[in-house]
């Protein structure tokens, strides 16, 4: 895998960027609910149970944003692209200020291709590794095969919450200096280059949309 730094306008591998996503999906903000069932696959009971579970998880993790998107994606739309765009342009209803999109864990189910994915914001990405996410998906696989999508999403969230809990306990033991050193180490994974203009551009787009 090639390094991706904040200076890069596009992915070194596939050439994808926020600009290209904006060209494709639009630069406007979209309103999302925590459980956004665009495909109408979930029954009300399942949705209620899932919302209750998310409520519990949000109490446990006041900073984290848990949301799910179920849809029938067109063939020219990749789940990873959708996840990336939704996290940068979506506004989840009911999400407090303390839960920005960079703290979001977004589960996407494509009912057409029978695929499930997890998009992570920057902050969530620093807490959850790809291995943890993959294990969570694998644990939900039996539910997905049985078309128990509500339970599957809940299982994924709960599994990721266990990871967050372990990670939080470890971080709690660290001193302030150690936390700063860790934060610095996370940022040093990218190249030390000047600030990218894309976030500013994004804000400008948002302001223009409003």
């Amino acid at each position: 895998m090639r390094p991706v730094d904040h200076e890069a306008e596009s992915c070194y591998s596939c050439g994808y960027s926020a600009l290209k996503a904006a060209e494709k999906f639009g630069s406007n903000q979209v309103a999302l609910s925590r459980v956004h069932d665009a495909a109408h696959w979930l029954r009300k009971q399942e949705k209620d149970v899932l919302n209750t579970a998310i409520d519990q998880l949000e109490v446990k993790f006041p900073q984290m944003l848990f949301c799910a998107y179920l849809g029938l994606l067109p063939e020219n739309l990749k789940m990873s692209e959708l996840g990336f765009w939704l996290l940068n342009h979506g506004q989840v209803k009911g999400a407090e200020y303390a839960r920005p999109n960079e703290n979001a864990i977004l589960v996407i189910l494509d009912m057409k291709t029978k695929q499930v994915g997890i998009s992570l914001g920057y902050f969530a990405e620093s807490l959850i590794t790809q291995e943890d996410g993959y294990r969570a998906l694998m644990k939900a696989r039996p539910n997905l095969l049985n078309a128990e999508y509500g339970e599957a999403i809940e299982t994924i969230f709960r599994r990721l919450c266990k990871v967050l809990e372990k990670r939080g306990k470890k971080l709690r033991k660290l001193s302030h200096e150690e936390l700063q050193a860790q934060s610095k180490a996370l940022n040093e994974n990218t190249l030390d280059l000047p600030q990218h203009f894309a976030p500013m551009l994004g804000r400008w787009w948002r302001l223009r949309a409003v």
Binding site: H6, S17, F84, N88, V116, L120, E125, L137, G202
Partner: peptide, 21 residues
């Protein structure tokens, strides 16, 4: 902590994990 953004994304840098069921 404030991680630095990637690919021009304000909140997400495109971290994604997926699986087919």
């Amino acid at each position: 902590w404030e991680p630095k953004p990637r690919l021009g994304g304000e909140f997400s840098g495109g971290g994604f994990i997926s699986m087919s069921f």
